[in-house]
Simulated assay, not measured.
Amino acid sequence: MLRITLSNLTDISIPMNDVKKRWYEYIQDNILDSFVEYSKSTQLTIKYVDFHDFDENVKMNMTRVLTIAQIYHLKISEQNVYVNVLSAIISLLQELTTLKIHFLSLYKPIMLDSEELISDLSINHTSKVRKIYLQTMYEIREFSILLNACPYMEYLKVDYTEKMNFKFVLRYILKKIKYDCNEHLRLLCFRVPTADDETIIKLNRMINLEKLPWNFKIKRVAENLYFEWK
């Protein structure tokens, strides 16, 4: 496995012997009957994004990275990732299949000279991102934005839904993919440490009341609840 780290979109480091298991590999162990293609395991980690110089530097630095290796997995450690920045990076890393971010900011930084938000939300039909790990979701709109940026998303993992009940988030997502006739998203994961058998019974009841046309399966693994359907 090759990991490439950018500390500020200018400094590149390559730790060669890091074989620590990645978040998307746990899915194979627990839920899905699939495998990780290790020939496409190169991960890029961006630790800091300088919004002052973003427009000038991002293309140059992504080009430098791609001369080292093709990037299939992206992790952005920056606490707040503005949607315009994320969209630009995804469009440059055309072979990207997984994405991990801490928090998606919907509010444009004053110093960022970019297009209006409505342009940022346009559907990116060229994106190959299939698996997304959003550590903290603050607003329900973040799901729609990610779905527009990555319309072929198959799996979404969320650790925390700040100020929102995860059941509300789950219901919103299920309704949206039903009414949008989304044929790609088929697996959700929420971190719910307090979940027990009674929780799963209530969730099954809620899903049945929504009259969704899918065969649902709910599975609890450690502190996570997985929702899979076909």
Rank of each mutant, 00 (worst) to 15 (best):
L2G: 08
S7H: 14
T10S: 14
D11H: 11
I14K: 12
N17E: 14
N17A: 08
N17T: 10
D18C: 13
V19R: 09
K21W: 09
R22G: 02
Y24D: 05
Y24R: 03
Y24H: 13
E25W: 09
E25P: 06
N30A: 12
I31K: 03
S34E: 07
V36C: 11
V36N: 14
V36D: 12
E37D: 15
S39C: 05
K40L: 11
L44R: 02
I46W: 02
Y48M: 10
V49F: 11
D50I: 10
D50W: 08
D53P: 02
F54V: 02
D55H: 03
K59D: 12
M60D: 09
N61V: 15
N61G: 09
M62A: 04
T63S: 12
R64D: 13
R64L: 13
V65D: 00
V65G: 00
T67V: 11
T67S: 12
I71F: 04
Y72L: 04
Y72G: 01
H73T: 07
K75T: 14
K75G: 04
S77G: 09
E78L: 11
V81W: 00
Y82F: 15
V83Q: 01
V85K: 00
S87G: 11
A88V: 04
I89Q: 00
I89P: 00
I89S: 00
L92R: 06
L93E: 00
T98R: 03
L99F: 04
H102D: 13
F103R: 11
K108G: 05
M111G: 06
D113T: 04
L117S: 03
I118C: 11
S119K: 15
S122M: 07
S122H: 05
N124R: 04
T126H: 07
T126I: 08
S127K: 03
V129T: 05
V129I: 12
I132P: 00
I132W: 00
Q135I: 12
T136L: 12
M137A: 09
E139L: 06
E142D: 10
F143A: 00
S144H: 15
I145Y: 13
L146F: 08
L146R: 01
L147V: 07
N148H: 10
A149T: 08
C150K: 01
C150W: 01
M153N: 02
E154F: 04
Y155Q: 08
Y155G: 02
L156V: 11
D159T: 10
T161H: 05
F166P: 02
F166T: 12
F168L: 11
F168V: 13
F168P: 02
L170W: 02
Y172L: 10
Y172W: 14
L174K: 01
K175L: 13
K176S: 10
I177Y: 01
I177H: 01
K178W: 06
C181M: 06
N182Y: 05
L185V: 04
R186Y: 08
L187V: 05
C189D: 04
R191Y: 07
P193D: 08
T194P: 02
D196W: 07
T199C: 15
I201G: 03
L203A: 01
R205P: 03
M206R: 08
I207M: 03
L209F: 07
K211F: 05
L212F: 05
L212A: 04
L212C: 04
W214K: 09
W214T: 09
K217S: 15
K217F: 13
K217C: 14
K219V: 14
R220W: 06
V221Y: 05
A222S: 13
A222P: 04
A222H: 14
K230W: 05
K230M: 12
K230S: 13
